[in-house]
Computed example of a mutant assay.
Amino acid sequence: MRALIAAAAGLAAALALVLTITAVGTPEGRTSPQPLLTTVPAHP
C-alpha cells in the first residue's frame, strides 16, 4: 500500500511539473539560423 501511495505522489509531482512548465510557456528569443556542429568538419 505504501508503494502505491508513493507512486501516486510521484506521478502527481511529475504531472504538476509538466503543467507548470506548459503554463509558463517558451522563453522569448530567437534561434540561430546556423546549425550546430557536433563534429569537427573534415578538411579536403
Rank of each mutant, 00 (worst) to 15 (best):
M1W: 07
T26G: 09
P44S: 06
A8M: 07
R30W: 09
G10E: 07
R2E: 15
V18H: 04
P27Q: 05
S32K: 05
L15E: 03
T39Y: 04
A3I: 09
G10L: 12
L17A: 15
R2T: 12
A23N: 04
V40D: 04
G25D: 00
T39A: 09
I21F: 10
P44E: 05
H43E: 09
A3S: 13
P44N: 05
I21P: 00
S32A: 08
A14C: 03
S32I: 02
A9Y: 02
I5A: 15
V18A: 15
V40T: 14
L4E: 13
R30T: 01
L4G: 14
P44L: 08
T31D: 07
L37A: 12
P41Y: 03
T26W: 10
P27F: 04
A23D: 02
P41E: 02
P35Q: 03
A3E: 14
T39L: 06
A9D: 08
L11S: 06
M1P: 15
L4T: 13
L17R: 06
G25Y: 00
V40P: 01
L15I: 09
G25P: 00
V18L: 13
T26C: 03
G25W: 00
A12I: 05
A42P: 00
G29F: 03
P35T: 01
A23C: 02
E28M: 06
P33C: 01
T20E: 03
V18G: 06
L19F: 12
L19T: 11
A42G: 05
V24C: 06
Q34L: 15
A7W: 05
A12G: 05
A23H: 03
T22N: 14
L19R: 09
Q34D: 13
L15S: 09
T31Y: 10
A14M: 06
L15T: 10
L4R: 12
T31F: 11
A3W: 07
L37W: 08
A13Q: 02
A42N: 05
A16W: 04
Q34M: 12
G10M: 09
A3F: 10
I21N: 08
V24I: 15
E28F: 08
A3T: 11
T38K: 09
L36W: 06
P44R: 10
L19A: 15
P41W: 03
L36P: 05
L36S: 11
A8T: 06
P27T: 07
V18C: 06
V24K: 11
G29C: 03
R30M: 05
A12Q: 01
G10S: 09
V18T: 11
L37E: 11
A23V: 07
L15H: 00
Q34E: 14
L19G: 14
G10W: 04
A6N: 11
A23G: 07
V40C: 04
H43A: 14
P41A: 03
L11I: 10
L19W: 08
M1V: 13
V40N: 07
S32V: 04
L15D: 01
L19H: 05
S32C: 11
L11V: 10
A42Y: 06
P41D: 01
G25R: 01
